[in-house]
Write a protein that binds this DNA or RNA. Structure first.
Lengths: 89, 89
DNA sequence: AGAGGCGCTTCATTTTCTGTAGCATCGCCG
DNA sequence: CGGCGATGCTACAGAAAATGAAGCGCCTCT
């Protein structure tokens, strides 16, 4: 479960999420969107780049593997919406 | 993305994973399976119980919402297998 | 009584995260 | 050219979290 270990680090899933739909964000924009301090963001980005999930190409974007990841994440996101609305009641 | 925040904590996804297929584990068995020290496990279990993902019923098991989560996790697990085998090459 | 399993708790150490500040670089505009 | 704003990213001190080992109190079974 190495992948779960990587994605289970603070902010990792959030970064991937913010780069959904082929978004290209600058370091600072990503920092604002993911609500992470620069040090953490930079550490996380290094790991995600090493894992070939995030690519740098005129800003940060998902690699093709990262795009697959977003697709695989869809059911989880659906679940989290249901979960959030269920908790409100 | 409160759910992602919760699941993005160390060991959280791993705990859910170890409870897949309606498994019922004792605290110590879960500790061994998830490779977590008791303090961390206990903290995480408290969060997961508060989120109604894990239930205590003669041991730790997934709640019905937790079972839904496992299903939603399937594509991600598939992706992580592909990812792991791709990294080996 | 003793042995073993149980769910935790405690504690000291190490690791990680946070938040602010700021550096060096680049492109743009007058 | 000289400044201006934005960029990616580093530095640092303090806070928070995780780690690993030890062990407590409780229960059950022999």
């Amino acid at each position: 479960m190495a992948a779960l270990d990587l994605l289970g680090r603070r902010g990792a899933l959030r970064i991937v999420w913010e780069l959904r739909e082929a978004r290209v964000l600058t370091f600072r924009a990503l920092q604002a969107a993911a609500e992470l301090p620069p040090g953490t963001l930079n550490t996380r980005l290094a790991e995600l780049r090493a894992a070939d999930i995030v690519a740098v190409d005129g800003g940060y974007r998902l690699s093709s593997r990262g795009a697959d990841l977003i697709i695989a994440l869809w059911p989880l996101l659906r679940w989290s919406e249901d979960w959030a609305s269920a908790l409100e009641t």
